[in-house]
Design a protein around this nucleic acid. Structure first.
Lengths: 305, 305
DNA sequence: CGTTCTTACGTGTGTCGTAACGATC
DNA sequence: GATCGTTACGACACACGTAAGAACG
Protein backbone atom coordinates (compact mmCIF):
# COMPACT_ATOMS: atom_id res chain seq x y z
CA UNK A 1 0.00 0.00 0.00
CA UNK A 2 1.34 3.39 -0.95
CA UNK A 3 0.49 6.89 0.14
CA UNK A 4 -0.05 8.00 -3.45
CA UNK A 5 -2.83 5.46 -3.79
CA UNK A 6 -4.56 7.02 -0.80
CA UNK A 7 -4.09 10.48 -2.25
CA UNK A 8 -5.74 9.33 -5.43
CA UNK A 9 -8.63 7.81 -3.51
CA UNK A 10 -9.25 10.98 -1.55
CA UNK A 11 -8.90 13.24 -4.53
CA UNK A 12 -11.29 11.02 -6.44
CA UNK A 13 -13.91 11.45 -3.74
CA UNK A 14 -13.31 15.19 -3.71
CA UNK A 15 -13.72 15.27 -7.49
CA UNK A 16 -17.15 13.65 -7.57
CA UNK A 17 -15.62 10.35 -8.68
CA UNK A 18 -14.20 11.69 -11.90
CA UNK A 19 -10.89 9.92 -12.35
CA UNK A 20 -9.75 12.40 -14.99
CA UNK A 21 -10.38 15.43 -12.78
CA UNK A 22 -8.74 13.78 -9.83
CA UNK A 23 -5.71 13.01 -11.99
CA UNK A 24 -5.31 16.54 -13.27
CA UNK A 25 -5.72 17.95 -9.77
CA UNK A 26 -2.95 15.60 -8.64
CA UNK A 27 -0.76 16.58 -11.59
CA UNK A 28 -0.89 13.06 -12.91
CA UNK A 29 -2.28 11.48 -16.04
CA UNK A 30 -5.53 9.65 -15.78
CA UNK A 31 -4.23 6.08 -16.26
CA UNK A 32 -1.88 6.58 -13.33
CA UNK A 33 -4.76 7.35 -10.99
CA UNK A 34 -6.79 4.47 -12.40
CA UNK A 35 -3.90 2.21 -11.57
CA UNK A 36 -3.66 3.53 -8.02
CA UNK A 37 -7.31 2.84 -7.42
CA UNK A 38 -7.10 -0.57 -9.00
CA UNK A 39 -4.07 -1.56 -6.96
CA UNK A 40 -5.65 -0.35 -3.75
CA UNK A 41 -8.83 -2.26 -4.37
CA UNK A 42 -6.87 -5.36 -5.33
CA UNK A 43 -4.69 -5.24 -2.25
CA UNK A 44 -7.72 -4.90 -0.02
CA UNK A 45 -9.39 -7.74 -1.85
CA UNK A 46 -12.81 -6.12 -1.55
CA UNK A 47 -14.93 -3.90 -3.72
CA UNK A 48 -14.55 -0.40 -2.37
CA UNK A 49 -16.11 1.43 -5.34
CA UNK A 50 -19.66 1.35 -6.58
CA UNK A 51 -19.63 1.16 -10.36
CA UNK A 52 -21.91 1.85 -13.27
CA UNK A 53 -20.29 0.05 -16.14
CA UNK A 54 -16.68 1.09 -15.89
CA UNK A 55 -17.48 4.41 -14.31
CA UNK A 56 -16.93 4.88 -10.60
CA UNK A 57 -19.93 6.49 -8.98
CA UNK A 58 -19.49 6.02 -5.24
CA UNK A 59 -18.05 4.05 -2.38
CA UNK A 60 -19.26 0.79 -0.87
CA UNK A 61 -19.64 0.49 2.90
CA UNK A 62 -16.15 -0.94 3.06
CA UNK A 63 -15.02 1.93 0.87
CA UNK A 64 -16.34 4.51 3.32
CA UNK A 65 -14.31 2.95 6.10
CA UNK A 66 -11.28 2.79 3.87
CA UNK A 67 -11.71 6.47 3.02
CA UNK A 68 -11.82 7.32 6.70
CA UNK A 69 -8.59 5.53 7.45
CA UNK A 70 -6.99 6.87 4.30
CA UNK A 71 -7.68 10.37 5.58
CA UNK A 72 -6.27 9.44 8.97
CA UNK A 73 -3.15 8.04 7.36
CA UNK A 74 -2.48 11.07 5.20
CA UNK A 75 -3.24 13.37 8.10
CA UNK A 76 -0.51 11.58 10.03
CA UNK A 77 1.88 12.04 7.15
CA UNK A 78 0.99 15.72 6.84
CA UNK A 79 1.54 16.25 10.55
CA UNK A 80 4.88 14.55 10.28
CA UNK A 81 6.03 16.88 7.54
CA UNK A 82 4.68 19.83 9.49
CA UNK A 83 7.02 18.97 12.36
CA UNK A 84 9.91 19.28 9.94
CA UNK A 85 8.75 22.52 8.39
CA UNK A 86 8.21 23.98 11.82
CA UNK A 87 11.84 23.48 12.72
CA UNK A 88 13.38 24.63 9.47
CA UNK A 89 11.67 27.37 7.54
CA UNK A 90 10.55 28.90 10.75
CA UNK A 91 7.98 31.55 10.04
CA UNK A 92 7.16 30.63 6.49
CA UNK A 93 4.28 28.68 5.07
CA UNK A 94 0.57 29.03 4.65
CA UNK A 95 -2.06 29.68 7.27
CA UNK A 96 -5.51 28.67 6.08
CA UNK A 97 -8.28 30.11 8.20
CA UNK A 98 -11.91 29.18 7.82
CA UNK A 99 -14.33 31.76 9.18
CA UNK A 100 -17.89 32.96 8.92
CA UNK A 101 -18.69 36.35 7.49
CA UNK A 102 -19.03 37.95 10.90
CA UNK A 103 -15.61 36.72 11.98
CA UNK A 104 -13.88 37.55 8.73
CA UNK A 105 -15.42 41.00 8.53
CA UNK A 106 -15.42 42.28 12.12
CA UNK A 107 -13.08 40.19 14.26
CA UNK A 108 -10.24 38.94 12.12
CA UNK A 109 -8.89 42.11 10.49
CA UNK A 110 -6.91 43.37 13.50
CA UNK A 111 -5.75 39.82 14.29
CA UNK A 112 -4.52 39.31 10.77
CA UNK A 113 -2.81 42.67 10.87
CA UNK A 114 -0.71 41.88 13.92
CA UNK A 115 -0.10 38.34 12.72
CA UNK A 116 1.26 39.58 9.42
CA UNK A 117 3.59 41.93 11.27
CA UNK A 118 4.95 39.02 13.26
CA UNK A 119 5.10 36.59 10.33
CA UNK A 120 5.39 38.58 7.10
CA UNK A 121 6.53 35.47 5.20
CA UNK A 122 3.43 33.44 6.03
CA UNK A 123 0.70 33.52 3.42
CA UNK A 124 -2.64 34.03 5.12
CA UNK A 125 -5.70 32.61 3.43
CA UNK A 126 -9.22 33.26 4.62
CA UNK A 127 -11.88 30.86 3.46
CA UNK A 128 -15.37 32.08 4.15
CA UNK A 129 -18.06 29.46 4.73
CA UNK A 130 -20.99 28.59 6.91
CA UNK A 131 -20.54 26.78 10.22
CA UNK A 132 -21.34 23.29 8.94
CA UNK A 133 -19.01 23.70 6.02
CA UNK A 134 -16.33 24.97 8.39
CA UNK A 135 -16.56 21.83 10.48
CA UNK A 136 -16.12 19.68 7.44
CA UNK A 137 -13.28 21.80 6.14
CA UNK A 138 -11.49 21.55 9.46
CA UNK A 139 -11.96 17.79 9.69
CA UNK A 140 -10.80 17.21 6.13
CA UNK A 141 -7.85 19.53 6.51
CA UNK A 142 -9.11 22.00 3.94
CA UNK A 143 -8.30 24.71 6.48
CA UNK A 144 -5.89 24.77 9.41
CA UNK A 145 -8.09 26.67 11.83
CA UNK A 146 -11.83 27.18 11.84
CA UNK A 147 -13.45 30.07 13.64
CA UNK A 148 -17.12 30.38 14.37
CA UNK A 149 -19.75 30.24 17.05
CA UNK A 150 -21.87 27.26 16.05
CA UNK A 151 -21.26 23.57 15.48
CA UNK A 152 -17.54 23.52 16.18
CA UNK A 153 -17.81 21.96 19.62
CA UNK A 154 -20.23 19.31 18.40
CA UNK A 155 -17.65 17.35 16.48
CA UNK A 156 -15.53 14.99 18.56
CA UNK A 157 -12.79 15.01 15.93
CA UNK A 158 -12.08 18.67 16.65
CA UNK A 159 -10.44 20.50 19.48
CA UNK A 160 -12.49 23.67 20.01
CA UNK A 161 -11.03 26.46 22.10
CA UNK A 162 -13.60 28.88 23.51
CA UNK A 163 -12.36 32.36 22.71
CA UNK A 164 -14.88 35.02 23.59
CA UNK A 165 -18.49 35.59 24.50
CA UNK A 166 -20.79 37.97 22.73
CA UNK A 167 -24.45 38.82 22.55
CA UNK A 168 -26.77 40.69 20.27
CA UNK A 169 -27.72 44.30 19.89
CA UNK A 170 -30.62 46.03 18.31
CA UNK A 171 -29.99 48.46 15.48
CA UNK A 172 -32.55 50.77 13.93
CA UNK A 173 -32.90 54.10 12.22
CA UNK A 174 -32.18 56.76 14.87
CA UNK A 175 -35.77 57.96 15.17
CA UNK A 176 -37.27 54.48 15.43
CA UNK A 177 -39.63 54.06 18.43
CA UNK A 178 -38.13 50.66 19.33
CA UNK A 179 -35.01 52.49 20.51
CA UNK A 180 -37.07 54.36 23.10
CA UNK A 181 -38.43 51.37 24.99
CA UNK A 182 -37.09 51.15 28.58
CA UNK A 183 -36.21 48.38 28.84
CA UNK A 184 -36.25 46.74 25.45
CA UNK A 185 -38.15 43.46 25.87
CA UNK A 186 -38.86 40.47 23.66
CA UNK A 187 -42.32 41.93 23.16
CA UNK A 188 -40.82 45.18 21.94
CA UNK A 189 -38.88 43.25 19.32
CA UNK A 190 -42.00 41.44 18.19
CA UNK A 191 -43.86 44.68 17.55
CA UNK A 192 -41.76 45.63 14.54
CA UNK A 193 -40.56 43.92 11.35
CA UNK A 194 -37.27 42.18 12.09
CA UNK A 195 -34.13 41.77 9.99
CA UNK A 196 -31.63 39.23 11.29
CA UNK A 197 -29.53 36.19 10.50
CA UNK A 198 -30.54 33.03 8.65
CA UNK A 199 -31.02 29.97 10.79
CA UNK A 200 -27.72 28.19 11.39
CA UNK A 201 -25.75 31.44 11.14
CA UNK A 202 -24.32 33.65 13.83
CA UNK A 203 -26.34 32.54 16.81
CA UNK A 204 -29.69 32.45 15.09
CA UNK A 205 -30.51 29.14 16.80
CA UNK A 206 -30.49 30.55 20.34
CA UNK A 207 -32.29 33.63 19.12
CA UNK A 208 -35.23 31.68 17.75
CA UNK A 209 -35.27 29.44 20.84
CA UNK A 210 -35.59 32.41 23.14
CA UNK A 211 -38.62 33.78 21.34
CA UNK A 212 -40.17 30.33 21.12
CA UNK A 213 -39.73 29.68 24.84
CA UNK A 214 -41.88 32.70 25.58
CA UNK A 215 -44.40 31.62 22.98
CA UNK A 216 -43.57 34.65 20.84
CA UNK A 217 -43.51 34.75 17.07
CA UNK A 218 -41.16 37.50 15.88
CA UNK A 219 -42.00 38.96 12.52
CA UNK A 220 -38.82 38.32 10.53
CA UNK A 221 -39.12 40.06 7.18
CA UNK A 222 -35.62 39.38 5.96
CA UNK A 223 -32.95 36.96 7.06
CA UNK A 224 -29.40 37.23 5.78
CA UNK A 225 -26.20 35.31 6.26
CA UNK A 226 -24.15 38.40 6.89
CA UNK A 227 -24.40 41.53 8.94
CA UNK A 228 -23.73 43.99 6.16
CA UNK A 229 -26.89 42.93 4.37
CA UNK A 230 -28.85 43.35 7.59
CA UNK A 231 -27.47 46.84 8.15
CA UNK A 232 -28.25 47.81 4.58
CA UNK A 233 -31.92 46.91 4.90
CA UNK A 234 -32.23 48.49 8.30
CA UNK A 235 -30.96 51.68 6.68
CA UNK A 236 -33.57 51.16 3.96
CA UNK A 237 -36.22 51.26 6.67
CA UNK A 238 -37.30 47.67 6.16
CA UNK A 239 -37.37 47.07 9.91
CA UNK A 240 -35.24 46.84 13.01
CA UNK A 241 -32.12 44.67 13.01
CA UNK A 242 -30.72 42.20 15.49
CA UNK A 243 -27.00 41.66 14.96
CA UNK A 244 -23.99 40.49 16.90
CA UNK A 245 -22.82 43.34 19.11
CA UNK A 246 -19.28 42.98 17.84
CA UNK A 247 -20.57 43.81 14.35
CA UNK A 248 -21.65 47.29 15.36
CA UNK A 249 -18.90 49.72 14.43
CA UNK A 250 -18.92 52.94 16.43
CA UNK A 251 -17.50 55.03 13.64
CA UNK A 252 -19.14 53.66 10.51
CA UNK A 253 -22.52 52.94 12.05
CA UNK A 254 -23.02 56.25 13.77
CA UNK A 255 -26.09 56.82 11.57
CA UNK A 256 -27.85 53.90 13.29
CA UNK A 257 -29.26 53.75 16.77
CA UNK A 258 -28.11 50.83 18.91
CA UNK A 259 -29.33 49.13 22.10
CA UNK A 260 -27.75 46.16 23.87
CA UNK A 261 -29.89 43.01 24.06
CA UNK A 262 -27.70 40.93 26.36
CA UNK A 263 -30.43 40.89 29.01
CA UNK A 264 -32.77 39.06 26.62
CA UNK A 265 -30.68 36.36 24.97
CA UNK A 266 -28.15 33.81 26.19
CA UNK A 267 -24.55 34.68 25.44
CA UNK A 268 -22.85 32.98 22.51
CA UNK A 269 -19.32 31.63 22.57
CA UNK A 270 -17.09 31.86 19.56
CA UNK A 271 -14.50 29.12 19.29
CA UNK A 272 -11.42 28.39 17.28
CA UNK A 273 -10.99 24.78 16.30
CA UNK A 274 -8.62 22.35 14.63
CA UNK A 275 -8.51 18.56 14.28
CA UNK A 276 -7.55 16.69 17.41
CA UNK A 277 -3.99 15.46 17.18
CA UNK A 278 -3.10 17.95 14.47
CA UNK A 279 0.43 19.22 14.76
CA UNK A 280 0.21 22.96 15.11
CA UNK A 281 3.16 24.83 13.76
CA UNK A 282 4.46 27.63 15.88
CA UNK A 283 2.93 30.35 13.78
CA UNK A 284 -0.43 28.58 13.92
CA UNK A 285 -0.22 28.41 17.69
CA UNK A 286 0.78 32.05 17.67
CA UNK A 287 -2.25 32.96 15.60
CA UNK A 288 -4.52 31.30 18.13
CA UNK A 289 -2.84 33.31 20.89
CA UNK A 290 -3.31 36.54 18.96
CA UNK A 291 -6.92 35.70 18.33
CA UNK A 292 -7.51 35.10 22.03
CA UNK A 293 -5.90 38.43 22.88
CA UNK A 294 -7.96 40.29 20.33
CA UNK A 295 -11.01 38.48 21.62
CA UNK A 296 -10.61 39.92 25.10
CA UNK A 297 -10.22 43.39 23.55
CA UNK A 298 -13.47 42.91 21.66
CA UNK A 299 -15.31 41.95 24.80
CA UNK A 300 -14.11 45.04 26.60
CA UNK A 301 -15.05 47.40 23.81
CA UNK A 302 -18.54 46.01 23.32
CA UNK A 303 -19.15 45.88 27.08
CA UNK A 304 -18.44 49.59 27.04
CA UNK A 305 -21.77 50.20 25.31
CA UNK B 1 7.82 10.55 2.19
CA UNK B 2 7.23 6.83 2.06
CA UNK B 3 5.65 4.42 4.48
CA UNK B 4 8.71 2.18 4.42
CA UNK B 5 10.78 5.04 5.79
CA UNK B 6 8.39 5.31 8.72
CA UNK B 7 8.52 1.58 9.28
CA UNK B 8 12.29 1.78 9.44
CA UNK B 9 12.13 4.65 11.90
CA UNK B 10 9.78 2.81 14.20
CA UNK B 11 11.65 -0.45 13.99
CA UNK B 12 14.86 1.41 14.72
CA UNK B 13 13.37 2.80 17.92
CA UNK B 14 12.10 -0.65 18.85
CA UNK B 15 15.56 -2.09 18.23
CA UNK B 16 17.40 0.24 20.61
CA UNK B 17 18.69 2.29 17.67
CA UNK B 18 20.61 -0.55 16.10
CA UNK B 19 20.23 -0.06 12.36
CA UNK B 20 21.44 -3.58 11.63
CA UNK B 21 18.92 -5.20 13.95
CA UNK B 22 16.10 -3.04 12.63
CA UNK B 23 17.06 -4.02 9.09
CA UNK B 24 17.07 -7.73 9.76
CA UNK B 25 13.75 -7.49 11.60
CA UNK B 26 12.33 -5.74 8.54
CA UNK B 27 13.82 -8.34 6.21
CA UNK B 28 15.99 -5.72 4.60
CA UNK B 29 19.71 -5.17 4.38
CA UNK B 30 21.25 -2.59 6.62
CA UNK B 31 22.17 0.02 3.94
CA UNK B 32 18.54 0.10 2.86
CA UNK B 33 17.37 1.10 6.32
CA UNK B 34 20.19 3.61 6.61
CA UNK B 35 18.96 5.16 3.41
CA UNK B 36 15.36 5.31 4.65
CA UNK B 37 16.42 7.15 7.76
CA UNK B 38 18.67 9.48 5.83
CA UNK B 39 15.96 10.30 3.31
CA UNK B 40 13.42 10.91 6.02
CA UNK B 41 15.70 13.24 7.92
CA UNK B 42 16.64 15.05 4.72
CA UNK B 43 13.05 15.56 3.67
CA UNK B 44 12.16 16.94 7.07
CA UNK B 45 15.20 19.18 6.93
CA UNK B 46 15.81 18.80 10.66
CA UNK B 47 17.93 16.58 12.81
CA UNK B 48 15.65 13.93 14.21
CA UNK B 49 18.36 11.59 15.52
CA UNK B 50 20.85 12.13 18.28
CA UNK B 51 24.20 10.82 17.17
CA UNK B 52 27.48 9.69 18.68
CA UNK B 53 29.87 9.72 15.78
CA UNK B 54 27.94 7.95 13.07
CA UNK B 55 25.96 5.83 15.49
CA UNK B 56 22.36 6.72 16.18
CA UNK B 57 21.66 6.76 19.89
CA UNK B 58 18.33 8.50 20.30
CA UNK B 59 15.79 10.98 19.03
CA UNK B 60 15.82 14.74 19.22
CA UNK B 61 12.74 16.58 20.45
CA UNK B 62 11.63 16.96 16.86
CA UNK B 63 12.33 13.27 16.39
CA UNK B 64 10.00 12.33 19.21
CA UNK B 65 7.18 14.24 17.55
CA UNK B 66 8.02 12.68 14.23
CA UNK B 67 7.93 9.24 15.84
CA UNK B 68 4.50 9.97 17.24
CA UNK B 69 3.07 10.94 13.88
CA UNK B 70 4.88 8.09 12.16
CA UNK B 71 3.05 5.71 14.48
CA UNK B 72 -0.24 7.47 13.77
CA UNK B 73 0.36 7.22 10.05
CA UNK B 74 1.19 3.53 10.09
CA UNK B 75 -1.71 2.85 12.42
CA UNK B 76 -3.97 4.43 9.83
CA UNK B 77 -2.48 2.25 7.14
CA UNK B 78 -2.88 -0.85 9.29
CA UNK B 79 -6.51 -0.02 10.00
CA UNK B 80 -7.09 0.46 6.31
CA UNK B 81 -5.75 -2.98 5.50
CA UNK B 82 -7.76 -4.45 8.37
CA UNK B 83 -10.95 -3.21 6.72
CA UNK B 84 -10.01 -5.22 3.67
CA UNK B 85 -9.08 -8.34 5.55
CA UNK B 86 -12.30 -8.14 7.50
CA UNK B 87 -14.35 -8.36 4.34
CA UNK B 88 -12.39 -11.06 2.60
CA UNK B 89 -10.75 -13.73 4.67
CA UNK B 90 -13.57 -13.51 7.12
CA UNK B 91 -12.70 -15.43 10.24
CA UNK B 92 -9.00 -15.76 9.71
CA UNK B 93 -6.15 -13.79 11.12
CA UNK B 94 -4.43 -13.24 14.44
CA UNK B 95 -5.95 -12.06 17.69
CA UNK B 96 -3.33 -10.67 20.03
CA UNK B 97 -4.55 -10.33 23.58
CA UNK B 98 -2.59 -8.64 26.31
CA UNK B 99 -3.59 -9.69 29.82
CA UNK B 100 -2.36 -9.84 33.38
CA UNK B 101 -1.73 -13.14 35.04
CA UNK B 102 -5.07 -13.12 36.84
CA UNK B 103 -6.97 -12.58 33.61
CA UNK B 104 -4.96 -15.07 31.60
CA UNK B 105 -5.17 -17.75 34.25
CA UNK B 106 -8.69 -17.46 35.65
CA UNK B 107 -10.89 -15.46 33.32
CA UNK B 108 -9.72 -15.99 29.78
CA UNK B 109 -9.65 -19.79 29.44
CA UNK B 110 -13.40 -20.27 28.95
CA UNK B 111 -13.57 -17.18 26.71
CA UNK B 112 -10.76 -18.43 24.54
CA UNK B 113 -12.42 -21.84 24.39
CA UNK B 114 -15.69 -20.56 22.99
CA UNK B 115 -13.90 -18.07 20.74
CA UNK B 116 -11.82 -20.85 19.20
CA UNK B 117 -14.96 -22.82 18.55
CA UNK B 118 -16.45 -19.87 16.69
CA UNK B 119 -13.24 -18.93 14.86
CA UNK B 120 -11.04 -22.02 14.56
CA UNK B 121 -8.96 -20.34 11.86
CA UNK B 122 -7.95 -17.38 14.00
CA UNK B 123 -4.64 -17.68 15.78
CA UNK B 124 -5.02 -16.53 19.37
CA UNK B 125 -1.99 -15.09 21.08
CA UNK B 126 -1.89 -14.21 24.75
CA UNK B 127 0.79 -11.82 25.87
CA UNK B 128 1.15 -11.63 29.60
CA UNK B 129 2.36 -8.36 31.07
CA UNK B 130 1.76 -5.92 33.88
CA UNK B 131 -0.84 -3.17 33.60
CA UNK B 132 1.56 -0.38 32.61
CA UNK B 133 3.16 -2.54 29.97
CA UNK B 134 -0.29 -3.48 28.70
CA UNK B 135 -1.20 0.15 28.19
CA UNK B 136 1.93 0.72 26.18
CA UNK B 137 1.44 -2.44 24.17
CA UNK B 138 -2.11 -1.43 23.33
CA UNK B 139 -1.10 2.08 22.32
CA UNK B 140 1.77 0.88 20.16
CA UNK B 141 -0.31 -1.83 18.58
CA UNK B 142 1.76 -4.66 20.00
CA UNK B 143 -1.55 -6.26 21.02
CA UNK B 144 -5.06 -5.83 19.66
CA UNK B 145 -6.90 -5.95 22.97
CA UNK B 146 -5.63 -5.34 26.48
CA UNK B 147 -7.42 -6.72 29.50
CA UNK B 148 -6.78 -5.68 33.05
CA UNK B 149 -8.14 -3.78 36.00
CA UNK B 150 -5.65 -0.96 36.44
CA UNK B 151 -4.35 1.89 34.31
CA UNK B 152 -6.36 1.17 31.16
CA UNK B 153 -8.86 3.96 31.67
CA UNK B 154 -6.16 6.48 32.44
CA UNK B 155 -4.87 6.72 28.91
CA UNK B 156 -6.84 9.01 26.62
CA UNK B 157 -5.55 7.18 23.54
CA UNK B 158 -7.46 4.06 24.55
CA UNK B 159 -11.10 3.11 24.54
CA UNK B 160 -11.67 1.11 27.73
CA UNK B 161 -14.84 -0.93 28.08
CA UNK B 162 -15.79 -1.77 31.67
CA UNK B 163 -16.51 -5.49 31.73
CA UNK B 164 -17.09 -6.79 35.21
CA UNK B 165 -16.71 -5.92 38.87
CA UNK B 166 -14.93 -8.06 41.38
CA UNK B 167 -13.64 -7.85 44.91
CA UNK B 168 -11.28 -9.73 47.15
CA UNK B 169 -11.59 -12.79 49.29
CA UNK B 170 -9.59 -14.12 52.15
CA UNK B 171 -7.97 -17.53 51.81
CA UNK B 172 -6.30 -19.44 54.61
CA UNK B 173 -5.56 -22.96 55.78
CA UNK B 174 -8.92 -24.45 56.85
CA UNK B 175 -8.18 -24.40 60.60
CA UNK B 176 -6.89 -20.81 60.61
CA UNK B 177 -8.55 -18.63 63.28
CA UNK B 178 -8.98 -15.71 60.85
CA UNK B 179 -11.68 -17.72 59.10
CA UNK B 180 -13.73 -17.81 62.32
CA UNK B 181 -14.08 -14.06 62.81
CA UNK B 182 -17.70 -12.86 62.42
CA UNK B 183 -17.49 -10.54 60.66
CA UNK B 184 -14.02 -10.40 59.20
CA UNK B 185 -12.77 -6.83 59.68
CA UNK B 186 -9.74 -4.87 58.58
CA UNK B 187 -8.43 -5.38 62.08
CA UNK B 188 -8.79 -9.13 61.72
CA UNK B 189 -6.66 -8.99 58.61
CA UNK B 190 -3.99 -6.99 60.37
CA UNK B 191 -3.63 -9.56 63.13
CA UNK B 192 -1.99 -12.14 60.89
CA UNK B 193 0.86 -12.21 58.39
CA UNK B 194 -0.53 -11.31 54.95
CA UNK B 195 0.26 -12.64 51.51
CA UNK B 196 -1.10 -10.57 48.62
CA UNK B 197 -0.35 -8.80 45.37
CA UNK B 198 2.53 -6.48 44.56
CA UNK B 199 1.65 -2.80 44.30
CA UNK B 200 0.39 -1.97 40.82
CA UNK B 201 -1.02 -5.43 40.29
CA UNK B 202 -4.56 -6.74 40.58
CA UNK B 203 -6.14 -4.04 42.67
CA UNK B 204 -3.34 -3.69 45.18
CA UNK B 205 -3.66 0.10 45.02
CA UNK B 206 -7.17 0.24 46.46
CA UNK B 207 -6.28 -2.46 48.94
CA UNK B 208 -3.43 -0.46 50.44
CA UNK B 209 -5.52 2.71 50.37
CA UNK B 210 -8.28 1.10 52.40
CA UNK B 211 -5.94 0.05 55.17
CA UNK B 212 -4.21 3.41 55.14
CA UNK B 213 -7.50 5.31 55.41
CA UNK B 214 -8.17 3.55 58.70
CA UNK B 215 -4.63 4.17 59.86
CA UNK B 216 -3.89 0.46 59.77
CA UNK B 217 -0.59 -1.11 58.81
CA UNK B 218 -1.18 -4.64 57.51
CA UNK B 219 1.72 -7.00 57.99
CA UNK B 220 2.49 -8.08 54.42
CA UNK B 221 5.09 -10.84 54.55
CA UNK B 222 5.05 -11.69 50.87
CA UNK B 223 3.76 -9.88 47.82
CA UNK B 224 3.49 -11.59 44.47
CA UNK B 225 2.42 -10.61 41.00
CA UNK B 226 0.25 -13.64 40.57
CA UNK B 227 -2.34 -15.54 42.54
CA UNK B 228 -0.79 -18.97 42.19
CA UNK B 229 2.25 -17.85 44.14
CA UNK B 230 0.01 -16.43 46.84
CA UNK B 231 -1.97 -19.65 47.13
CA UNK B 232 1.23 -21.66 47.28
CA UNK B 233 2.55 -19.73 50.26
CA UNK B 234 -0.78 -19.72 52.01
CA UNK B 235 -0.71 -23.51 51.72
CA UNK B 236 2.83 -23.39 53.16
CA UNK B 237 1.37 -21.71 56.20
CA UNK B 238 3.23 -18.43 55.63
CA UNK B 239 0.09 -16.43 56.42
CA UNK B 240 -3.39 -15.60 55.22
CA UNK B 241 -3.95 -14.55 51.62
CA UNK B 242 -5.99 -11.81 50.02
CA UNK B 243 -6.76 -12.58 46.41
CA UNK B 244 -9.26 -11.63 43.74
CA UNK B 245 -12.45 -13.61 44.39
CA UNK B 246 -12.52 -14.77 40.80
CA UNK B 247 -9.18 -16.50 41.37
CA UNK B 248 -10.64 -18.87 43.95
CA UNK B 249 -11.50 -22.12 42.23
CA UNK B 250 -14.17 -24.18 44.01
CA UNK B 251 -12.79 -27.50 42.86
CA UNK B 252 -9.03 -27.05 42.99
CA UNK B 253 -8.94 -24.89 46.09
CA UNK B 254 -11.21 -26.99 48.26
CA UNK B 255 -8.27 -27.47 50.64
CA UNK B 256 -8.31 -23.77 51.47
CA UNK B 257 -10.84 -21.89 53.55
CA UNK B 258 -12.37 -18.81 51.95
CA UNK B 259 -14.28 -15.73 53.15
CA UNK B 260 -15.61 -12.88 51.05
CA UNK B 261 -14.13 -9.43 51.75
CA UNK B 262 -16.40 -7.34 49.57
CA UNK B 263 -17.73 -5.50 52.64
CA UNK B 264 -14.25 -4.17 53.38
CA UNK B 265 -12.82 -3.02 50.07
CA UNK B 266 -14.12 -1.01 47.13
CA UNK B 267 -15.03 -3.08 44.09
CA UNK B 268 -12.60 -3.20 41.21
CA UNK B 269 -13.61 -2.96 37.57
CA UNK B 270 -11.82 -4.96 34.92
CA UNK B 271 -11.78 -3.37 31.47
CA UNK B 272 -10.96 -4.40 27.97
CA UNK B 273 -9.25 -1.74 25.90
CA UNK B 274 -7.99 -0.92 22.42
CA UNK B 275 -6.68 2.22 20.75
CA UNK B 276 -9.30 4.82 19.96
CA UNK B 277 -10.08 4.82 16.29
CA UNK B 278 -8.69 1.33 15.79
CA UNK B 279 -10.64 -0.66 13.25
CA UNK B 280 -11.91 -3.75 15.03
CA UNK B 281 -12.33 -6.75 12.80
CA UNK B 282 -15.47 -8.72 13.30
CA UNK B 283 -13.79 -11.51 15.20
CA UNK B 284 -12.16 -8.96 17.49
CA UNK B 285 -15.52 -7.40 18.19
CA UNK B 286 -16.89 -10.87 18.74
CA UNK B 287 -14.15 -11.63 21.25
CA UNK B 288 -15.09 -8.55 23.24
CA UNK B 289 -18.71 -9.71 23.25
CA UNK B 290 -17.73 -13.17 24.45
CA UNK B 291 -15.57 -11.66 27.15
CA UNK B 292 -18.46 -9.52 28.36
CA UNK B 293 -20.73 -12.56 28.48
CA UNK B 294 -18.22 -14.62 30.38
CA UNK B 295 -17.71 -11.67 32.69
CA UNK B 296 -21.33 -11.71 33.78
CA UNK B 297 -21.07 -15.47 34.39
CA UNK B 298 -18.05 -14.88 36.61
CA UNK B 299 -19.87 -12.30 38.65
CA UNK B 300 -22.77 -14.65 39.25
CA UNK B 301 -20.58 -17.56 40.31
CA UNK B 302 -18.48 -15.54 42.72
CA UNK B 303 -21.55 -13.79 44.14
CA UNK B 304 -22.82 -17.26 44.96
CA UNK B 305 -20.22 -17.57 47.70
C1' DC C 1 -18.87 11.52 -31.71
C1' DG C 2 -17.18 13.30 -27.56
C1' DT C 3 -16.21 11.83 -23.00
C1' DT C 4 -14.31 8.62 -19.87
C1' DC C 5 -12.02 4.71 -18.40
C1' DT C 6 -8.99 0.49 -19.77
C1' DT C 7 -5.21 -1.79 -21.80
C1' DA C 8 -0.60 -1.90 -23.77
C1' DC C 9 4.00 -0.49 -23.89
C1' DG C 10 8.40 2.13 -23.25
C1' DT C 11 11.32 4.98 -20.46
C1' DG C 12 13.37 6.67 -16.53
C1' DT C 13 13.60 6.85 -11.66
C1' DG C 14 14.70 4.72 -7.56
C1' DT C 15 14.90 0.90 -4.31
C1' DC C 16 17.26 -2.74 -2.70
C1' DG C 17 21.20 -5.98 -2.53
C1' DT C 18 26.19 -6.81 -2.97
C1' DA C 19 30.56 -5.26 -1.94
C1' DA C 20 34.20 -2.41 -0.45
C1' DC C 21 35.57 1.14 2.81
C1' DG C 22 35.68 3.78 7.39
C1' DA C 23 35.03 4.45 12.27
C1' DT C 24 34.54 3.11 16.97
C1' DC C 25 34.87 0.13 20.96
C1' DG D 1 39.96 -6.94 14.93
C1' DA D 2 35.12 -7.40 15.34
C1' DT D 3 31.06 -4.75 15.01
C1' DC D 4 28.39 -1.18 13.09
C1' DG D 5 27.95 2.30 10.17
C1' DT D 6 28.56 4.80 5.23
C1' DT D 7 29.53 5.02 0.32
C1' DA D 8 29.56 3.09 -4.40
C1' DC D 9 27.50 0.59 -7.91
C1' DG D 10 24.52 -2.42 -10.59
C1' DA D 11 20.14 -4.99 -11.48
C1' DC D 12 15.61 -5.28 -11.23
C1' DA D 13 11.11 -3.34 -10.41
C1' DC D 14 7.77 -0.12 -11.07
C1' DA D 15 5.52 4.31 -11.53
C1' DC D 16 4.31 7.38 -14.81
C1' DG D 17 3.50 9.12 -19.46
C1' DT D 18 2.12 8.23 -24.25
C1' DA D 19 -0.94 6.13 -27.31
C1' DA D 20 -4.42 3.30 -28.88
C1' DG D 21 -8.76 0.74 -27.89
C1' DA D 22 -13.51 0.01 -25.66
C1' DA D 23 -17.91 1.41 -23.34
C1' DC D 24 -21.22 4.97 -22.45
C1' DG D 25 -24.47 8.68 -23.33
Amino acid sequence: MELRQLRSLIMLVESEFSVSRAASRLNLVQPAVSQHLKQLEEELGTRIFRRQGKRLVGLTDAGEKVLHYARATLAGAANLLAVGRDHVEEGTGVLRIGATHTQARYVLPPVIRSFREAYPAVEVQIHQANPLQLVEMAVNDAVDLAICTEALDRNPALTAIPSYRWNRCLIALPDHPALEARPVTLDTLCEYPLVTYVFGFTGRGHLSDTFARDGLRPHVVLSATDTDVIKTYVREGLGIGIIADLAYEEDKDADLGVRALSHLFPAEVTKIAYPKDKYLQRFQQRFIDLFQQEATRIIRSSRAR
